[in-house]
Design a protein around this nucleic acid. Structure first.
Lengths: 125, 125
DNA sequence: TTAGTTGCAAAAAGTTTGCAGCACG
DNA sequence: CGTGCTGCAAACTTTTTGCAACTAA
């Protein structure tokens, strides 16, 4: 594990919000780290490949990252306001996906489900 | 409705695959249309806003568009190879989403479910 | 010494915006 | 006329790549 990967993992507090590479870089720089943006991108890519961080694409197209509590396959409930994310497992959904795909004679490669909303704190504006 | 919107809607055959703005532009140009890339982007944005086309972001982050058969809320089963898409409605999923959100005290704004796989034709390589 | 890591600068890719000209009521 | 549409060129954003300097076994 490289220095950049350690720095990124450290900044990506477990259970925290999804953060973009740029934000993460700014955060690390702000904390005194001299890390370059390139290294942040490279570290995130490596960590995502190894499954140590989850990637989520925002509607605007930018990739955001998070260190998740579970190694298992799961989905996210994300607060559109504060970014807080909850991990949810959905065995019934997985079964349903496979069944629907079979009906249409598709072999499933992958699927994504993301729920966007407001957490209780942010809901009362 | 502008000329660009008519051209885009025409090129975006109903029930066809999801297509990027760039591909759509190339396709229209190839067919002899003198339309500019800017107009394609503007037309797609307007059509997406009015709900006449569905938008899907590919894993690489580029936006793709499709004219769907149903006006109702639905999800997609997309072939990763040929782009063919099937629309699926999932009332049970919608109920499940609301219930999970309620459990975590989230007010749901929106949710997305996309299934990526291979259709029968593409599966036999 | 050598394989891997770093960060800057530049490039790439997708999308948006400024603006002058055009079309059409 | 004037309002809105058009397309080019330029700007912008996010991400990737080339490369020379650096680091650590």
């Amino acid at each position: 594990m490289t220095r950049a990967q350690r720095a990124v993992l450290g900044a990506l507090a477990a259970e925290g919000p999804f953060v973009s590479a740029q934000d993460l870089h700014a955060q690390l720089r702000g904390a005194g780290d001299r890390i370059g943006l390139t290294s942040v991108y490279r570290a995130l890519q490596a960590l995502a490949d190894s499954g140590d961080v989850d990637v989520l694409r925002t509607p605007s197209g930018e990739a955001t990252y998070r260190r998740c509590g579970s190694d298992r396959h799961h989905h996210h409930l994300v607060c559109a306001s504060c970014g807080k994310a909850v991990e949810v497992e959905a065995p019934a959904l997985e079964r349903w996906v496979r069944q629907v795909a079979a009906t249409h004679e598709f072999a499933v490669d992958s699927h994504t489900l993301e729920i966007s909303g407001r957490c209780r704190t942010c809901a009362r504006d």
